[in-house]
């Protein structure tokens, strides 16, 4: 299944590349409204057509990719940054009060899907891309905490951990030297998956108006705008959706490929 890794990596690189390119160059300026050319189907001048303000959809997609990627990445960083240390701490003293508190806290967060968190934040502070980051990031925390706790617990039973304790090392040091490095592969794979889920969640949040606000372009927002025009301008709905689909598909393929590539070796070595 090497192929899925390469295809996935290629798609992800293309999307990221397009997002980065948009900082330097886009086919058409997306701030300039061109009402004369509004709602044009794909053509030579506008490869993916124009929207109801006459903006170039390809350019919008490229700029929108920035939002999606930024939100999803920061959310993964938040999830890992809090989740992994919490999971490691819980596993280091399994069954202790800290383990209990961390795991119950996790259960609690699991009861709040990111949409509900976003709803609460928006109800109090108003909408914005930061909401999406916080909401998705908070939801990522228990995902990483559970994953790292579960894997760390099985690593804690290994004899090399016992050997490290015989060598007088403390739980913190063992977590850093022995547990974390052996979790790295797992975290990379899960990080890819949460990244793709983050893209989906960001799109959904901005679709219902809880994410990035106009004029910042975002894929979900573009779909929301296209909805009322779908019967006569299906291209406006088609391309942002395809962009999301392709990005998520690419990340998932990459995640699966990474898992196949990294995991068996880990399994064989660590037995």
């Amino acid at each position: 299944m090497k192929a899925s890794l390469w295809i996935g990596a290629l798609i992800s690189a293309l999307v990221t590349g397009a997002a980065l390119l948009s900082f330097l160059w886009v086919p058409h300026d997306i701030e300039a409204l061109d009402i004369a050319n509004k709602i044009k189907p794909p053509s030579g001048a506008h490869l993916l057509g124009t929207d109801h303000f006459g903006r170039d959809i390809l350019s919008m997609l490229m700029v929108g990719a920035r939002t999606s990627i930024a939100v999803a990445i920061v959310a993964v960083v938040i999830g890992m940054g809090f989740g992994v240390p919490l999971g490691l701490a819980a596993a280091a003293r399994q069954g202790g009060w800290m383990d209990e508190v961390i795991m119950r806290g996790n259960d609690l967060i699991f009861a709040f899907p990111s949409l509900l968190i976003a709803i609460m934040i928006t109800a109090v502070f108003g909408a914005g891309a930061v909401n999406a980051i916080i909401a998705i990031g908070i939801f990522n925390i228990p995902v990483f905490a559970r994953l790292s706790r579960g894997a760390a617990l099985s690593l804690w039973t290994r004899d090399y951990v016992l050997a490290a304790r015989v060598a007088g090392k403390g739980r913190l040091r063992i977590s850093a030297e022995h547990i974390l490095p052996n979790l790295a592969n797992l975290l990379i794979v899960q990080g890819t998956i949460q990244f793709s889920l983050g893209i989906l969640a960001e799109a959904a949040l901005s679709y219902v108006g809880l994410g990035a606000q106009p004029p910042v372009p975002s894929w979900g927002r573009m779909l929301a705008d296209s909805q009322t025009m779908i019967s006569f301008a299906p291209h406006m709905a088609l391309f942002p959706g395809l962009a999301i689909l392709l990005t998520v598909l690419g990340l998932n393929l990459m995640g699966d490929g990474l898992r196949d590539w990294l995991d068996p070796r880990l399994a064989r070595d660590a037995r």
Partner: peptide
């Protein structure tokens, strides 16, 4: 399933509206 996991459900819903309703 790889496709199904990657598809945003609200977009899929819009496409279904386009095809089956409109």
């Amino acid at each position: 399933t790889q496709l199904g996991v990657a598809i945003p459900n609200f977009w899929f819903a819009m496409l279904m509206v386009l095809v089956f309703a409109i």
